[in-house]
């Protein structure tokens, strides 16, 4: 019996594969901290279960997309008893202004926390203006 249902599942998955992008399960929106320093804006996002291989950081058309798949090693035959996390991936998007140097964006993930550093172009950095005593 279990053999039969496994085969059925595989067939379903194969049929669904071409439409996968459209029908993936809904993404979790990760909580973020965003702060700005003199030379860069930094985003920190909680994405537990994501490793460097399953992480995606992309910029296109002034939009920064961060996404990642949750990879957990689970024993076979697990049934859910309680679930806060109801999804298998994270995604969040940000709109970037002209001042961000999109070529120089760097990201890293450690212990499930993603850090993306968005350096500002030189010409857009804050300049302190000295006030002269009259």
């Amino acid at each position: 019996m279990s053999n039969v249902s496994k085969t059925d599942n595989r067939e379903l998955r194969q049929n669904a594969a071409p439409r996968e992008a459209a029908t993936r399960d809904p993404a979790i929106v990760p909580p973020v901290d965003v702060f700005e320093q003199d030379d860069a804006v930094t985003i920190r996002a909680d994405m537990p279960g994501v490793n460097p291989a399953s992480l995606g950081v992309e910029v296109s058309d002034h939009t920064l997309t961060i996404e990642g798949d949750i990879t957990l090693s689970m024993p076979e035959g697990v049934t859910a008893r309680y679930a806060d996390i109801r999804g298998s991936r994270y995604q969040r998007q940000f709109t970037l202004g002209e001042e961000i140097d999109t070529e120089a964006i760097e990201g890293s993930i450690r212990h499930g926390v993603l850090t993306v550093r968005l350096p500002k172009r030189d010409m857009h950095r804050k300049r302190r203006i000295d006030i002269q005593a009259a």
């Binding site: 909680d46 994405m47 537990p48 279960g49 957990l72 689970m74 024993p75 076979e76 035959g77 697990v78 049934t79 859910a80 008893r81 309680y82 679930a83 806060d84 996390i85 450690r110 212990h111 499930g112 926390v113």
Partner: peptide, 27 residues
């Protein structure tokens, strides 16, 4: 309350109970 940090999921197999605690950024 639901959604408190850290989020967690609980799963069960025939011989184990598995608790997954989503605790990013913690040593």
């Amino acid at each position: 309350p639901r959604g408190s940090f850290p989020l967690l999921n609980v799963g069960e197999t025939e011989d184990t109970v598995n608790v997954y605690v989503f605790a990013p950024g913690i040593e």
